[in-house]
Design a protein around this nucleic acid. Structure first.
Lengths: 144, 144
DNA sequence: CTCCATGCAAACACTTTGCAATCCG
DNA sequence: CGGATTGCAAAGTGTTTGCATGGAG
């Protein structure tokens, strides 16, 4: 069910297919929902493919992001974290960050449609995408 | 109308008042809405007070943020940017970022109240604060 | 007079870049 | 084969830290 043919996608865009690119993509795919940062991705790729260099990982992540296969999120913790872009997603989904335990949940989006309309009316600003993070207490941490 | 007595606030929290801290705070105050990053703040302080060191500026910004007088926003451009916290604000306000010209507008908040309720019902997550960024085209850039 | 705060430079952490070697097509 | 891609190490970037000096209370 991985379904995504990276080879094909790369070729279509005029890029070459390499094993390194596949390895990086695999790690991000396999860790869906983990919000790995670049270093973590580098280390995971390295476990299986110790010859890969940091630079390649960074370059590949940038390439995959540019191609729209993954995207970077910034949780303001000093790391750039990456997620797979799901085909169904129009907009990006949102995140719930627990300020007690640091856990990150994802929450489906399309809650903001009416707000974007309001923004267009008030500010004449045409929203294309948004990034929303909610900070608070997850279920577990509320019961302490 | 600057009104804020930094000296008093620092003392209350057990910190010492210094001119450097005042200078840094002044620059952030005077450039309300500019979303200055730390480097820019450092340079602006330096114009009037060339003896100040980078470290002091960073330490002061962190201190001011911890005291709730300013807060940092991350526009994913690699810089931490700071804003004055207005007393009236419960939550932080939102930003509209133009992906064409890079302009940043602010938009008042309290649009998300109903969403936070929905999140509590769906995810049992108690939202305390949120950060919202809308990406799109500002009025000017739509007319091109 | 006692620490806290400062300035400086060195250290850091993450990321990017230059370049020769390598691999894809 | 020829140009894109890689790996390495060096260079960048923004930020933080260690430490002696200086200043607030």
């Amino acid at each position: 069910m991985t379904g995504i043919n990276l080879n094909k996608i790369l070729k279509e865009r005029g890029y070459k297919f390499t094993n390194q690119r596949q390895h990086v993509f695999d790690v991000v795919m396999e860790n869906d929902g983990m919000h790995l940062n670049s270093q973590e991705i580098y280390e995971l790729v390295r476990e299986k493919h110790p010859e890969i260099g940091v630079a390649t990982v960074y370059r590949t992540l940038a390439l995959l992001e540019e191609m729209g296969l993954i995207y970077g999120v910034d949780f303001e913790d000093g790391f750039r974290r990456y997620e797979i872009v799901k085909n169904e997603e129009q907009h990006r989904h949102h995140h719930l960050l627990c300020i007690e335990c640091g856990s990150i949940q994802e929450v489906e989006e399309d809650l903001l449609g009416s707000i974007e309309e309001k923004i267009y009316q008030n500010n004449r600003f045409k929203v294309i995408n948004h990034r929303v993070k909610f900070y608070g207490y997850c279920e577990n941490c509320q019961n302490k």
